[in-house]
């Protein structure tokens, strides 16, 4: 598996898109710091960007890479290698290189700006951790789509829809349901609904850490009231890890039963 991971990573590091993605974050980091002149404000702005953008890039990049490396996969399948290792290697390669672009691209400007001496270093670290988790989650989800859908156009369409649903539509439906059922107690429901969407979950996780009551919103407030800051943080982290493990597991399961 490590050999496949190595070659996949190597292949991606040399592709143009990794650099574009990296440079984008680098530019974004410098621009935010330049405009805001304040690290903690820049972290909050970044949160809003990361939470929408990272899933989008993870999904699109994941599905494109899977379809484009069809030949590579077939070449590997005929070699004495376990199927599980092949797909796990490809997955970790893609998700890993996306995460590296994110961490380096944002990390460099912030470190240059004097992050290490400031108080927001932990908040910033958590932000990068969540960005990494989102990369892994959405790459796994897109690999799931790619493994079950051989038609590239359909696969691409489904993954864009998935992103749109998680990032935009889900919140809308959630809000509508809250208004519709406003006469009922909704704390548990909204808690559950938040856990079911990794994007919402990430947002709450970082807002809990930043402790900005005004930005917490309804679900955040419920979350905080229900779990308290620390327990809420741990539970959210655990569910986020489940969001990585379960889709990856399903992807491997499907890949082991697929004809190539």
């Amino acid at each position: 598996m490590y050999k496949i991971l190595k070659y996949c990573f190597y292949d991606l590091i040399r592709s143009r898109w990794s650099y574009v993605y990296f440079l984008f974050y680098l530019l974004l980091g410098f621009m935010l710091l330049f405009l805001n002149n304040d690290l903690s404000k820049a972290v909050i702005t970044l949160l809003n960007i990361i939470i929408v953008l990272v899933p989008l890039i993870g999904t699109i990049f994941g599905i494109m890479y899977f379809y484009n490396s069809k030949e590579f996969t077939e070449l590997l399948l005929a070699q004495p290698i376990r199927r599980r290792s092949i797909f796990l290697g490809l997955y970790l390669g893609v998700a890993g290189s996306l995460s590296v672009s994110l961490v380096l691209g944002l990390g460099i400007p912030f470190v240059l700006y004097g992050l290490m001496k400031s108080g927001v270093i932990w908040d910033f670290g958590l932000l990068l951790l969540i960005g990494t988790a989102l990369s892994f989650i959405f790459t796994a989800l897109s690999f799931n789509i790619a493994v079950t859908q051989d038609n590239k156009i359909k696969g691409f369409g489904y993954s864009v829809l998935l992103w749109l649903f998680m990032a935009v539509i889900y919140d809308g439906l959630f809000l509508l349901s809250l208004i519709f059922f406003e006469e009922y107690p909704l704390d548990r429901y909204s808690l559950g609904a938040t856990l079911l969407n990794p994007i919402d979950l990430s947002r709450i996780l970082i807002l809990l850490k930043l402790d900005i009551a005004a930005l917490l919103g309804y679900t955040g407030a419920v979350f905080k009231g229900f779990f308290g800051t620390n327990a809420g943080f741990l539970i959210a982290m655990a569910v986020l890890s489940l969001w990585v493990v379960l889709p990856t597991g399903r992807m491997i399961f499907k890949a082991e039963r697929k004809d190539f």
């Binding site: 292949d11 592709s15 030949e71 077939e74 070449l75 005929a78 070699q79 004495p80 290698i81 376990r82």
Partner: peptide, 20 residues
């Protein structure tokens, strides 16, 4: 998968990762 150490395969369509 270990039995594949004993065999070599020539695929019908020669397509390889283009970056390499």
């Amino acid at each position: 998968w270990t039995y594949r150490q004993q065999l070599s395969y020539l695929p019908q369509i020669a397509n390889f990762p283009g970056n390499l």
